[in-house]
């Protein structure tokens, strides 16, 4: 069974994040990803950035489903949770 911590490592290895939370039950996962690299990117492009990092794991079926919230540090602070 896939550990959320593993996904956490894959993402941080591919993208500098200022904040990252990954939760999941071994099948379905959700991630809150805060990174300065998202600035100026559309929602689609932000998720594509993450999918590019995880593509091989998704294609192999090792990772089935990851729900994502992708924010810049400014947006994250703007949500009052900074």
């Amino acid at each position: 069974m896939l550990d959320p911590q593993q996904i956490h490592q894959w993402i941080t290895a591919g993208l500098p994040c200022t904040h990252l939370i990954v939760n999941g039950d071994g099948q379905h996962f959700e991630a809150l990803i805060v990174s300065g690299e998202f600035a100026g990117l559309s929602r689609v492009k932000r998720q594509q950035r993450i999918y590019a990092i995880l593509r091989a794991r998704l294609d192999s079926g090792e990772l089935h489903a990851l729900s994502m919230q992708t924010l810049t540090p400014d947006e994250w602070e703007g949500q009052g949770r900074g």
């Binding site: 689609v44 998720q47 999918y51 593509r55 998704l58």
Partner: peptide
């Protein structure tokens, strides 16, 4: 985009279920 579902409006890709 490596996951399903995928929504297209007017021929343009809009996103998956999160978006």
């Amino acid at each position: 985009w490596p996951t399903i579902p995928q929504l297209y409006i007017g021929g343009e890709f809009v996103g998956g279920s999160d978006i």
